[in-house]
Structures are given as C-alpha cells and as structure tokens.
Design a protein around this nucleic acid. Structure first.
Lengths: 202, 202
DNA sequence: GAATATAGCAACCGACCGATCGGAAGCTAA
DNA sequence: TTAGCTTCCGATCGGTCGGTTGCTATATTC
C-alpha cells in the first residue's frame, strides 16, 4: 500500500521509529518495547518496522543510541564550553538535574539508561554491554573533571575523584527514583544540596 | 494426576512457588516472571501454579511480599535490638550493605525492590503502589533513627534527617548498580565511606 | 465410611510475541 | 524505457503469553 519513500524520507522514518522506541522504552523498558506496538503506534506493518533493524536486539541498540544522543545534547553539549574542572562539572551536574526534572519531555517514563541498566544488569548480551559502556564513559568524564579540580586546587588534595563520582551517580539515581516513584517535587533541590555537600567535603 | 496435598504440604508448595518467583524476578523483573517458566521450573502445570494466586498480579504481589520478608530478616531484624539512634542506624546500614553484597544468595539478580521500582515507576497499578509503600516505610525508619540521633546530640542539630535519608538511599542504589552492572568489588567499601561521609557532615 | 472440599493436571483458549516470506510500489541510473 | 534497488505491506510461521475448563485423586470432615 505505502510506496517507497525518498532517501531523506526513509531516514526520517527510521528516526520516527527510534523516537517512538525511546518514548515507549522509557516507560515499559527496552524489553517491554514490542514491534507490534511500535508498528501500531506508527501506522506501519511489523515487517516495515523490523526491516529497518533486522532484529529486536538491533532495534534496542538503536533506541539506546538515539537516547544517548538526546542525553548528549541536553547534558554534555551545553557544558562543553565551560572551563574544565569544577566549573564544567557544575554545569554538567546542573544540566543532569534539569534533564531528569524535565524528562517528561525527552523521556516520558524516566531516564532510559537507569531503566535499561536495571533491566539488563543481571543478563548478558549486547544491550547490557552497551549500557555498561555508556555508564563507564560518563563516569570517566566526571572523574576527569574531578581530577582537574583536585590538581588545580579547586578541591582538596585529599579528595578521591573515583569516590566522588560514585557518590554523585548515587545522587542522580536517587533523583530519578524520587521523581518517578515518589513524585517528590522537593527532589531536585535535595539533589542540588547533596551534590554541593559531596563536592564541599571532597 | 497429582493428588491433593495435606495443609502443611500445600503451604510448602506455595512457598516453593514464591521462592522461585523471587529468584526469577530478581533476574528478569516481576514482568519477566512468567507462569509457564515458573511451572516448568517447579515441575508443575501452569494451572497448578496459578491456582494458588488467581492472577499474575497477585503472584507478583506475593513475590514482593516474600522478598520483603527476606529483607526484613536480613536487614531489619538483626538491628532490632541495637540502641535507637545512630547505633541502630549503623547496624541497619551495615546489614543493608551485606544484603546487597551477598545477595547472590537471596536474590541472584540483584535487589528485587530496586528492579521493581524501576520497572513499575512509570505505570499505575497495585504492584507500583506496593513498591512505593515499601520504600516509604523504609525511608521513614531511616528518618526516625536519624531524628533520634539529632535529638540526642549524636548528629549536629542542623542536620536534616529527610535530606540524609535521601542521600543514604542514593548510596545504596549506587551500590546495587556497581555490583550488578559494573561488578565492581570495591563498591561495598566505597559505600561504607559514602555513608560515613553523609553521617559525618550531617 | 460417606460426603465434601480442594490441589493439581491435561488440554485448550484467544491474543500476542519476534521473525520470515513473496510481492507491490516507486525512486534512480543506464 | 527499463532494470535494479529499496521500502514497506499482508500473510503467515512456530512459539509463548495469561488465563479457563473439566476432571481426578486425596485429605478432611461428618
């Protein structure tokens, strides 16, 4: 019924699938994302959807990739021009806070990476590896700025960058839970206070 | 084929189903827990399994209940006799740490409550409500001991119990992720340091 | 010992799962 | 004009989902 689209339209179709996949997966998880539901939402056939990716696992990986592009645009890029060290770190963390606060725009059901990390942490496979790789990359970036802050004297010389990065990630896991499960409007402010304490007592 | 069992045996069958459900759900989530898989694992028919609960949602709630009994036995009860305040809180937190550390015994795939909270936080329903209620209860217990610690002078009068409880929960969310996703053997020790810092700077 | 209650089974239901297939349709290049 | 490529559809595959039904065999109750 539906004819072939131009190359540009084809890419747009692929992007539409990924956008919808990210939205569904943020609510129901990457495993709860089904091809039939996706096809129905997009007014396509299941074969038309799956044809773009081949397998469901490839679709999950594409969705994860699309979500990480959103995360980069909202969190990393706005802070890219800030001065390395505590300044850039602060910009990243504030953007991270806002990303979770207003995620109902980007991710209607909460941070997709948190969801995916819980969903796949006890299994093997390419999706688990991809999620673990993302978290490792982001943690390294936090550690890098923390190290710069220590070297430049912005943080005490006794501060342990790995330990601080670990505590910061905990604060954002707590924020995601407080927003999604508890719907606690005070959570973003609480997180800012937690972050300030972690960095002040480094 | 299989005949009726005595009352005691019947209860044991129910407990076997719940135990297996907890193990499966800790790996695959409460949604990934399926009646067919459960029946196959237990050498029963699907109807025999479901007959004990009626619906899958009731089974999920029973599994959650069974898991919270395990959590109570491992975390709350050992600390029940400690002196209220910082002493009891410290005992609870250390037990919590060990519970996540050695959860491969109780929960082979990581803390079931963390998994369930992520899995259901963006949906409605009885399971979501039950998970939220459990977290609220546990948070209240942490806050209660923190408040006692403030009142008795163990913690600074300026310390905010709600804020500290929030940060403590974040530390344990980070611990679960570090163990399950990163398989980081240093995580328990890092968590102990994080907890000590949270309480020291309260 | 008869009557009743019930745990568990085998078989089955409609719905949906991921995946595959042949073919229709339209863009592009020769 | 036409051959080739690609997107997408409709149909269908084997399998699994949660759940229902009719039944048997036994423990309990009278």
């Amino acid at each position: 019924m539906s004819p072939r689209k131009s190359v540009a339209e084809t890419r747009r179709t692929r992007e539409r699938i990924i956008d919808r996949s990210v939205a569904i997966a943020s609510v129901d998880g990457l495993e709860g994302l089904t091809i039939g539901r996706l096809a129905a939402d997009l007014g396509m056939s299941k074969a038309g959807v799956l044809g773009h990716f081949g397998t469901k696992e490839a679709l999950q990986l594409a969705a994860l990739d699309g979500a990480s592009a959103i995360f980069a645009r909202l969190v990393w890029e706005p802070a890219a021009d800030a001065a390395p060290g505590l300044t850039r770190l602060g910009a990243v963390l504030e953007a991270w806070n806002r990303y979770l606060e207003t995620e109902r725009g980007a991710f209607p059901g909460g941070c997709l990476f948190t969801t995916a990390s819980i969903e796949f942490d006890a299994r093997g496979g390419a999706v688990r590896d991809a999620v673990a790789r993302l978290y490792r990359l982001w943690r390294r970036r936090l550690v890098a700025d923390l190290r710069i802050a220590v070297d430049s004297g912005e943080l005490a010389a006794t501060a342990d960058p790995e330990q601080l990065a670990y505590e910061l990630i905990g604060a954002y896991l707590a924020l995601n839970q407080a927003i999604q499960l508890e719907r606690d409007p005070a959570a973003p402010e609480r997180t800012r206070r937690a972050v300030a304490r972690i960095l002040a007592t480094g």
